[in-house]
Design a protein around this nucleic acid. Structure first.
Length: 874
RNA sequence: GGGCGUUUAGCUCAGUUGGUUCAGAGCAUCUGGUUUACACCCAGAGGGUCGGCGGUUCGAAUCCGUCAACGCCCACCA
């Protein structure tokens, strides 16, 4: 069979993915095995795959495939999120490009467009995940707005309402004037903005001298909403204002001066304008002192009728205009450059307007108790652990969650307004009607009930995800939820620890009385190699599909993993995908080599092959143990690197080179058989990381039955480890490397056989290996080094190769002297240590013993080095 | 303003309870090598005052203090 010298991923990837699908190898049903469950962090339904998804899903796939190969019943549930605000924004934009305004459409018409968009773009991302090799149970694909998940959301809403945990009320909320909706605190990003601090003059009412107070503010456009001025009662410099009234500039409205020690006397002039409708703190002052509240903004951020002459203008335009007008009127004392933090909408990047409005909220305090404890006592473990702090801090300072959004795309709130005020909450309109009839004492018809127009925050459906994907809300005792829940691992980014992770933990305890997962692995953020976040604007994000076409899915998976030290941001560099591709090729070619050998039953197994087999068996066991440890700590990057070295260095460069028969010679069948077995084991270890190439080669390794797959065979188990043998072979490698170095330095081609001489203790057992790897003509033990020989030391044993005329005495002397120098220095430091009585007394005996041995070894090494130098200098 | 984290080779990172020749890995670099699996390769080599300073200790990359730089999260000082 002729095999290409380069691995071509595109030929095999599609084939095997289809094979896995056709044979339903990703599908899971409850059985008596131990379950292993992951729910995917659902990507936006209309999103496209980016590098963050690549990383996240590669990790999940590695974990799932490994669990499956450990004999667990692995189930990875895929799905998508309706992403209320993001999707609605996209639909609005598309409509706008067609000249249609959202307001011109009815709710039903708009939703029809939104569903059309969803069906058009939805699921693309799931198809892209397939290209990556994701072994999701596609039969379980869920969508946060499909029937089942929607029912879960409504049920939970009604339930929490009945429990008194959901309430409706007027509160100061974060208002996004572009998206025209309220947002939760978590959706607001505070950014530093350089602006101005304006000092405004508020004339004192009835003061004959024309005296005034000066107020410092960053938002002069809100003066129309002022309903008081506040000073600190203990502030002597403003004491004269006590009990006075002042006049709001430009609009000449009279407002009282109130006193509260909230005011910082050091800031500005110590006078604070109070605008209860447009500032959170002012709102609290307003509540405390019963001040009127004047809302001067329309929902879109323009000024309303309270904006006087500025009505209809946009808020930032007003700021500029009012600055001029104040100057003209002589009411602007001064302005100075000022930097402060302003909240922006996470989605629209619009400056948030604090706004009083009627919204639905969820009480959080009760829910946090079991959730906070679970993480605190490691019932749910965080990797890396540092995020426990972040989590704890948020939990301890939690505020009620604003869950209503003034949008259409999402789960419409199941609350129904009654004709004469008030409302009822029910799963359906019919249910609500039944409740309404009991609640009111006047006759009503079902048509008089009007459902709340608002929808729920997207995260109100996501927070149920680990339960709702198994229908555990609507049918709490079903077979799936009982089997798969609690899920095992969650893989996600730390940026959604509050949005999602924390809330899932809460809902898990509220609805299942159990943790929703055992471990949370937080990935880092994918950045470019200069450390910049990947973004569309910068254009620094490679197209994952392109990458996979270029390097193969396995290559890209490896590239992602290699760069992702657990919990750190990763600086993605395409060169790592190249490394991944090269590794694929290495595996491919090792296979070609093995596959090309003819076997012969009649030839005996060479001694060197027998040693190599024993050694590699131990090496394999050792690696498997280390892998287990690394996986238990989610150090996937290191686990892969370990395998990489095992395959490339230990297996290819050492094992295969030792057992390799001479050119066009057959190999003994015993060695061949074991080698195939090792190769098989390596493929199985590699499979979670590189599913495609390992399946391709596993299938090619021997005849396989229909539907058989490497996916479902077990991981190799670690066996006996012969530690002395492992150590011996490391010595042997050093001897071989020593000879190779001599060849390189003296320019001796590999085909010229060399004589190797040894002075001192040497283990004869491995001579066959050394001879083969070094092309030796003879191996002899001598008592004194010959003058014309190049040498090296391994431990305290000296090896030398007689070179006759090729010898460069000067160079050899220099080398020896340098080594003598180093060893003498080393001996000095060891002796010093041993000469220190306190060391000998205090250090552990084995440490001291070790130092003694080091001393002896160094002394004997120095002796032989000196001897050699003397011989050469003759 | 508070909290957390990071700082080790040119780059990206390991380094568990302080002690084995502990200063490591991969990549990159340099040198030599192509009829005999793989140049997407093989063999070999160079490269670091472990961010600075101070302390504890017989002994510090590791523990403590302090400073610096960078990053992240949280916070109502207008």
């Amino acid at each position: 069979m002729e095999i290409a010298s380069k691995y071509n991923p595109s030929e095999v990837e599609e084939k095997w993915y289809k094979y896995w699908m056709d044979n339903k190898l990703f599908h899971s049903e409850p059985d008596d095995r131990e379950p292993y469950t992951i729910v995917i962090p659902p990507p936006n339904v209309t999103g496209v795959l980016h590098m963050g998804h690549m990383l996240n899903n590669t990790i999940q796939d590695v974990l799932v495939r490994r669990a499956r190969m450990q004999g667990k019943n692995a189930c990875w549930v895929p799905g998508t999120d309706h992403a209320s605000i993001a999707t609605e924004a996209k639909v609005v934009n598309r409509l706008a490009s067609q000249g249609i305004k959202k307001n011109d459409l009815s709710r039903e018409e708009f939703l029809a467009h939104a569903w059309e968009w969803t069906h058009e773009h939805g699921g693309i991302i799931l198809e892209q995940l397939k290209k990556l090799g994701a072994s999701c149970d596609w039969e379980r694909t869920a969508f946060t707005m499909d029937e089942e998940r929607s029912e879960s959301v409504l049920r939970v809403f009604c339930d929490l309402y009945d429990k008194g945990l959901i309430y409706r009320g007027v509160r100061m909320v974060n208002w996004d004037p572009k998206a025209l909706t309220a947002l939760s605190d978590e959706e607001v990003i505070h950014k530093e903005v350089t602006g101005k601090l304006y000092y405004l003059r508020y004339m004192i009412e009835g003061d004959p001298t024309g005296d005034y107070a000066v107020v410092a503010t960053t938002r002069p456009e809100t003066i129309m909403g002022d309903t008081a001025m506040c000073i600190n009662p203990n502030d002597p410099k403003n004491a004269h204002l006590k009990g006075k009234k002042v006049i709001v500039p430009l609009i000449n409205r009279v407002i009282p001066v109130i006193e509260d020690d909230y005011v910082d006397t050091e800031f500005g002039t110590g006078c604070l304008k109070v605008t209860p409708a447009h500032d959170v703190n002012d709102y609290m002052l307003g509540e405390k002192y019963n001040l009127p509240s004047i809302d001067i903004f329309n929902p879109d951020g323009t000024l309303n009728e309270h904006g006087a002459q500025y009505a209809g203008m946009e808020r930032f335009a007003v700021r500029k205009q009012i600055e001029k007008d104040l100057e003209t009127a002589g009411l602007m004392e001064k302005s100075e450059p000022y930097t402060n933090k302003v909240g922006f909408s996470e989605r629209t990047d619009e400056a948030i307007e604090p706004k009083l409005s009627m919204q639905w909220f969820m009480k959080m305090e009760e829910l946090t108790k079991p959730a906070a404890e679970a993480v605190e006592i490691d019932t749910i473990k965080f990797y890396p652990e540092k995020y426990k702090n972040t989590y704890r801090h948020w939990m301890e300072n939690i505020k009620d969650w604003c869950i209503s959004r003034q949008l259409w795309w999402g789960h419409q709130i199941p609350a129904y307004f009654l004709p004469q005020g008030g409302y009822v909450v029910g799963m359906t309109k019919e249910e609500a009607f039944e409740k309404a009839k009991k609640q009111v004492d006047y006759p009503i018809t079902i048509d008089e009930l009007k459902q709340d127009e608002d929808v729920l925050d997207t995260w109100f459906s996501s927070w149920l995800w680990p339960i709702s994907v198994f229908n555990g809300i609507s049918r709490p005792d079903n077979k799936d939820i009982s089997y798969y829940y609690p899920t095992s691992d969650l893989v996600t980014g730390p940026d959604i620890i509050f949005f999602w992770v924390a809330r899932m933990i809460m809902s898990g305890y509220e609805y299942r009385r159990e943790p929703c997962f055992r471990n949370v692995y937080f990935t880092g953020i994918v950045r470019d190699k200069q450390g910049r976040k990947m973004s569309k604007q910068l254009g620094n994000s490679p197209d994952p599909i392109e990458l996979m076409n270029q390097y193969g899915a396995d290559g890209v998976r490896m590239g992602m993993l290699l760069s992702s030290a657990a919990g750190n941001d990763l600086l993605f560099d395409e060169i790592l995908c190249e490394q991944g591709r090269n590794f694929n090729n290495k595996i491919w070619n090792a296979f070609r080599l093995i596959r090309g050998w003819e076997t012969d039953d009649t030839i005996p197994q060479p001694e060197s092959a027998r040693i190599a087999i024993d050694w590699f068996s131990s090496k394999l066991s050792e690696t498997i143990l280390e892998m287990d440890d690394l996986f238990s700590r989610y150090r996937l990057s290191e686990a892969l690197m370990l395998l990489y070295k095992l395959f490339w260095d230990e297996f290819s460069s050492w094992y295969l080179e030792i057992i390799k028969p001479a050119y066009q010679q057959p190999i003994d069948s015993e060695t061949y058989k074991v080698t195939l077995h090792y190769f098989d084991a390596l493929l199985r270890l590699l499979h979670p990381f590189m599913p495609f190439i390992t399946e391709e080669l596993w299938q090619a390794l021997q005849e396989r039955g229909a539907g058989e797959s490497i996916m479902t065979v077990l991981q190799p188990k670690s066996g006996e480890r012969d530690k002395p043998l492992l150590a011996d072979i490391e010595q042997v490698k050093q001897v071989i490397a020593g000879v190779r170095t001599i060849r390189l330095e003296k320019n001796i081609p590999n085909k010229d056989a060399l004589e190797l001489q040894v002075i001192g203790s040497h283990d004869e057992r491995y001579n066959s290996v050394i001879s083969k790897m070094c092309n030796l003509s003879s191996f002899s033990s001598i008592s004194e080094k010959q003058p014309g020989a190049a040498g090296f030391m391994v431990g305290t044993t000296e090896y030398s190769v007689p070179l006759a005329d090729k010898m460069d005495v000067e160079a050899e002397l220099q080398k020896l002297k340098a080594e003598l120098d180093y060893t003498e220095g080393f001996l000095l430091s060891v002796s010093k240590k041993l000469g220190n009585e306190r060391f000998v007394q205090n250090a552990k005996p084995e440490i001291v013993e070790n130092e003694r041995k080091k001393q002896e070894d160094a002394e004997s090494k120095i002796a032989s080095l000196k001897e050699n130098i003397a011989t050469l200098e003759k």
